[in-house]
Design a protein around this nucleic acid. Structure first.
Length: 810
DNA sequence: GAGTTTGAAACT
DNA sequence: CAGTTTCAAACTC
């Protein structure tokens, strides 16, 4: 074993570009240094002794093979020769007891690699000085002065340096000298520092989120490599310091067989492990921006210098080993193309993680290609950029801590790995929460309002999601009649529908439109929401906590139940969680949400009583909620708390909170919740693809449109607010002020056409704040189904309790 | 999963 | 507008 040598430090300081005074004096370097626990490369080198001590620590695994690589990477090595030099990686056989993450891979995985030609390279990486070296030097030289001006060049040079290092590191013909080891220790630190630098530069790229993590991964790679190389010495040959060439690797594999299956597995795994991680250092840079691609894309990707990208799976395994076992594959769908950057981040994170893990898990059948493991990590930086992640979540510093002291023993490596694992955990949590938020914001349990492409994409990504929402099952109607829920909701059928001979598809748009027009001509309100919620209404919370529609909400046409007593879902009123009204022609009504004979006043009274009960239960409110408490049952809009912040994207309604606020607030929340999760007919009828020519709905704010599109459309699609309805104005005189409770919905549904009406109908003494109105009217509503004049007829109807039969239809 | 029941939608 | 038929969802077994 090598022992520390005094000249090593000197040599290191001379040979390591990172220690260049020019660099150290540069503002960029200083900045980086401040960011990194590594004060300087020199400091790192000074600690080389500590690291070198590990060399003799046979127990575990010191890196000797890797040590020289960094130094030389900046001096020599033909990139072309680097390709398969990885195959000469030293292998880890045993002694990974402290790094379970790196030893968990089953041997079979590696066997596959072996049989796939991973271990049959014949290339010997020539040591090259000069031209190739210039890249590294260029990179270093440009760091202080040019990098910021020319980040692309910096990036290229940096990557080249990495490639060279890798190639050099595994140049089997090269023997480590103590000096080189020290240099490598130092270079390692330098690279880490450079990685940060690199990160700074690449942070400006559009694909920054895909780039920036490269540095982090590189740090990881360094650790992994160090560990692997270190263990190799222990397991294979405690006295050996020589990097293994290809033949050695083969020999190692053979010899490992004598050690036993486990060792063999470890050995092979280690080999692929190293290769994978190192390779993806190059690969990811080349792939920048393509991290999220699937294995398919990877398969076609022409990796720089990579004639054999079949090593990719190894990298997956590598990364899998770095991922805590508790990180399970998550729905891939969540990682599908996202629109917002934050969404991208979250989704990519999960996607890559899941893809990566999944790939690893399924590698039995995996082709020798697959998604980049970097995916899991490189989004972490972008996450950090987008989220207020506390610095302690970012492991880079702690990884640096492990490396800066050159503690190149297994403990250090394991520690770094653990940091990574912890970080991964943290990021997983963040991702989870982010996705949770996103799912709330963009929850699309049904693809009701989604664009066709979105639907297709979603279907492909997550069928279970479609299952959450019931779709039609039409057999004879061709989904061109109101029998079809999809059609009735104004949305196209999707694959999750079980319909037959469906014409309610984008390709039959004309047919759909014509049919719809036809139906509309027969019944202008045919596509109007069936449930109209009075302005005075708010969602009820029944005993079991389930939400119901506002007590005063009712089915626009009324049910006609004969046998079900309005106690089953056959009854549309019951299905919509609304009580029957006098407009219903039901017999023996026993609707638990309100019987037919129950007057509106009675309904309101009943509802208020329920609210009072709830209010009493929630009497113990917190100070914060008190500030939001308002007069119970306030009929005045201005009495409501400022809910302007409760946009569809930000609103949340924890049950606890809902129970601690005033009834009005709670009502509002309930209404909102009900509409977000139960009643989205309105939103579902906003399908941009599905607009009738009659409806010249302007394209509204994309955010809201998107939100609406993604709002769930579930069976109760016909529940909506009467704002959408022509009869919107009629109920302004109802016991409670109408519009308040509907505000949230109005936000999403009020079409501009109705704005003036809205203003009139909802204009309470205080009137609606213009900003509220503004936001509401910016949201598309269900397509104007009929000429507005038509609706005035209905307006008259609604003034009193809706008694009208579906004059439109019957 | 098949068959039945139910009530809305469609038709006459 | 009423009666009938068609239809698909809800429901039952």
């Amino acid at each position: 074993m090598e022992s520390p040598e005094g000249d090593r430090i000197k040599a290191t300081s001379l040979s390591t570009p990172g220690s260049s005074p020019a660099v150290q004096e540069s503002p960029v370097f200083n900045f980086i240094s401040n960011l990194s626990p590594i004060n300087s490369v020199k400091a790192a080198s000074n600690d080389a002794d500590a690291a070198s001590r590990g060399y003799g620590d046979c127990g575990n695994r010191m890196s000797t093979v890797l040590v020289p690589c960094i130094q030389k990477e900046l001096q020599s090595c033909s990139p072309s020769g680097c390709v398969d030099d990885y195959l000469t990686d030293p292998v880890e056989v045993e002694g990974c007891s402290n790094s379970n993450e790196l030893c968990v891979q089953p041997a079979k995985n590696v066997s596959k690699l072996s049989s796939s030609g991973f271990n049959s390279p014949t290339i010997t990486s020539p040591k090259v000085n000069g031209a190739n070296d210039r890249n590294s030097e260029d990179f270093m030289h440009m760091l202080p002065d040019q990098a910021e001006e020319d980040p692309l060049r910096s990036l290229a040079l940096f990557e080249t340096a990495i490639e060279q290092r890798d190639a050099e590191s595994f140049d089997g013909s090269h023997k480590l000298t103590p000096t080189e080891k020290a240099d490598q220790v130092e270079s390692n630190a330098f690279l880490l520092s450079s990685a940060q630098h690199y990160e700074q530069f690449t942070a400006h790229f559009d694909e920054k989120s895909l780039y920036t993590m490269s540095s982090f991964e590189m740090s990881v790679s360094q650790n992994v490599m160090l560990q692997n190389t270190g263990t190799q010495h222990n397991g294979q040959d405690g006295s050996s310091q020589s990097p293994k060439n290809l033949q050695n690797v083969e020999a190692d594999k053979n010899s490992s067989e004598n050690v036993g299956p486990v060792s063999t597995g470890l050995l092979k795994e280690s080999t692929s492990h190293q290769r994978g991680i190192r390779r993806h250092l190059q690969f990811e840079a080349a792939l920048a921006g393509k991290c999220i691609t699937t294995s398919k894309s990877h398969s076609s990707h022409n990796v720089t210098q990579e004639s054999d990208n079949s090593t990719l799976p190894a990298s997956f395994r590598d990364w899998e080993s770095l991922i805590p076992s508790d990180i399970e594959s998550r729905e891939v769908s969540s990682g599908r193309e996202a629109t917002s950057s934050s969404q991208n981040v979250a989704s990519r994170l999960s996607f890559c993680q899941s893809e990566f893990v999944r790939s690893s898990q399924n590698e039995e059948s995996l082709p020798l290609i697959g998604p980049l493991p970097p995916g899991f990590s490189l989004h972490l930086s972008s996450m950090a950029e987008l989220m207020p992640i506390s610095s302690d979540l970012m492991p880079t510093g702690r990884i640096h801590d492990y490396l800066k002291n050159d503690q190149l023993d297994d403990q250090a490596v394991v520690g770094a790995s653990l940091v990574i694992s912890q970080y991964t955990d943290s990021m997983k949590q963040i991702s989870d929460s982010l996705q949770m938020t996103l799912s709330e914001q963009q929850a699309a349990p049904c693809e009701g309002m989604m664009l066709t492409s979105e639907i297709e994409e979603k279907k492909a990504s997550n069928s279970s999601e479609s299952e959450d929402c019931k779709r039609c099952n039409c057999k004879k109607s061709k989904c061109l009649k109101l029998y079809c829920d999809c059609f009735a909701a104004g949305i196209y059928c999707i694959d999750s529908c079980a319909c037959e001979s469906c014409f309610n598809k984008p390709e039959y748009e004309e047919t759909v439109t014509d049919t719809r027009q036809q139906i509309q001509s027969r019944n202008p309100l045919a596509f109007a929401p069936k449930i109209v919620g009075h302005a005075d209404s708010a969602a009820n919370v029944v005993e079991d906590g389930n939400l119901t529609t506002p007590a005063s909400a009712r089915h626009k046409r009324g049910c006609n139940c004969k046998k079900s007593k309005c106690l089953k879902k056959y009854c549309e009123c019951f299905q919509a969680n609304v009580g029957c009204s006098d407009g219903c022609r039901c017999e023996g009504c026993s609707n638990s949400f309100g019987r037919k004979t129950e007057s509106k006043y009675q309904k309101v009274q009943r509802w208020e009583n329920q609210s009072h009960v709830k209010l009493d239960a929630a009497a113990n409110v917190t100070d914060s909620t008190k500030t939001r408490t308002i007069k119970p049952f306030s009929a005045r809009w201005e009495d409501l708390p400022d809910m302007s912040h409760l946009t569809p994207l930000s609103y949340s309604y924890p049950e606890a909170e809902a129970s601690s606020v005033s009834p009005s607030m709670r009502e509002f929340q309930n209404v909102r919740r009900a509409h977000l999760h139960q009643e989205s007919s309105f939103q579902s009828s906003v399908n941009p693809h599905w607009q009738s020519p009659m409806s010249s709905m302007p394209q509204f704010h994309e955010d809201f449109a998107e939100h609406n599109r993604r709002s769930s459309y579930c069976k109760v699609h016909d529940t909506t607010k009467e704002d959408n309805m022509p009869e919107i104005q009629k109920d302004t005189s109802t016991p409670s002020n109408a519009s308040k409770a509907d505000i949230p919905n109005k936000k999403q549904i009020s079409p501009p056409q109705f704005q003036s009406q809205e203003l009139r109908s909802s204009s309470t003494p205080g009137g609606l704040e213009s900003d509220h109105k503004f936001s509401w009217k910016n949201v598309p509503s269900f397509p104007p189904l009929t000429p507005y004049s038509k609706s005035k007829d209905d307006i008259g109807q609604t003034g009193s309790d809706f008694k009208g039969h579906p004059s439109d239809n019957r």
